[in-house]
Amino acid sequence: MIDVVEEKRVGVARVRVRYAETDQMGVVYHSNYLIWFEVGRVELIRSMGLNYKRMEVEEGRGIAVVDVHVRYRAPARYDDELVVETRLLAARGAVIKFGYKVLRVEDGTLLCEGQTVHVVVGKDMKKQSLPPKYAARFAAYLDPRSSDVQ
């Protein structure tokens, strides 16, 4: 069993594999990892003291996925408890990059790792800058010298 140490610069989300998320071979269907990446990403943003939903509603901006890289290392199975570790890797202008690791809690096995690249867009789906409050918080998270981390 792994001990999950919540570092300030790593978002941690727990999920349990549901039966519907497995395929005929009894393992998690590959696209479910992308859903768990999203869960991790939203939790990381929340841990920063920010709210993604509020950014969409009040600021009129979203973060569209434009690139995904995933490396599957070992299968997850029904009822496994998993930890999704999410890190902010880069945020510059309208581009944001996140990194992920999915581990099985029981034995600490790395099941999957990946990265997503996002572009900040308005409701018209045209590229826009990250709202100032979000840009400042992301910059603080990326600066290892910063103490402005929630």
Rank of each mutant, 00 (worst) to 15 (best):
L142E: 05
R71N: 15
V95H: 07
M55W: 00
K97L: 08
F37C: 00
N32R: 07
V39G: 03
L82V: 14
L44W: 00
D67A: 15
I96L: 08
E7F: 09
A74R: 15
G60W: 03
I35M: 09
R77W: 06
G60A: 06
Y52V: 00
H118S: 05
T109P: 02
N32Q: 13
R61D: 03
K123G: 15
L88V: 06
R14W: 08
E59G: 03
F98E: 00
L111C: 02
V102M: 01
G26I: 04
A136R: 12
F138N: 05
L44D: 00
P144C: 11
T86R: 03
A139Q: 09
V83R: 13
D80M: 05
F98T: 01
A90G: 13
S146K: 10
V17T: 08
G93A: 06
G108F: 03
V66L: 06
V5I: 14
E81H: 08
A91I: 01
E59A: 13
H30T: 04
R61A: 15
R14K: 15
P132F: 04
V84Y: 11
V120C: 15
D67E: 14
G49M: 02
I63C: 13
R77C: 07
E81G: 09
M25P: 02
V27P: 04
Y29H: 15
F37G: 03
G11K: 03
Q128A: 15
V119M: 02
R61W: 04
R61C: 11
R145N: 15
G40F: 00
H118T: 09
R16W: 10
R92F: 09
A135I: 06
V66C: 05
R41I: 01
V12K: 09
G49E: 00
K126P: 02
D3M: 10
P131W: 02
K101C: 07
V121N: 07
K97H: 10
K123L: 05
C112L: 10
M1L: 12
S47F: 03
K8N: 15
S147P: 06
V15K: 13
V105W: 04
T22H: 04
Y134A: 08
L50R: 01
E56R: 07
L130I: 14
D23G: 01
P132Y: 07
V10K: 12
K53T: 15
K8Q: 13
G40V: 01
H30K: 04
P131V: 03
V149C: 11
H69M: 09
V66Q: 08
R77E: 11
M48V: 00
V17Y: 04
Q115D: 14
S31H: 15
G108Y: 06
E106A: 14
V149E: 06
A136S: 13
P131R: 03
M125K: 14
V105Q: 12
A76T: 14
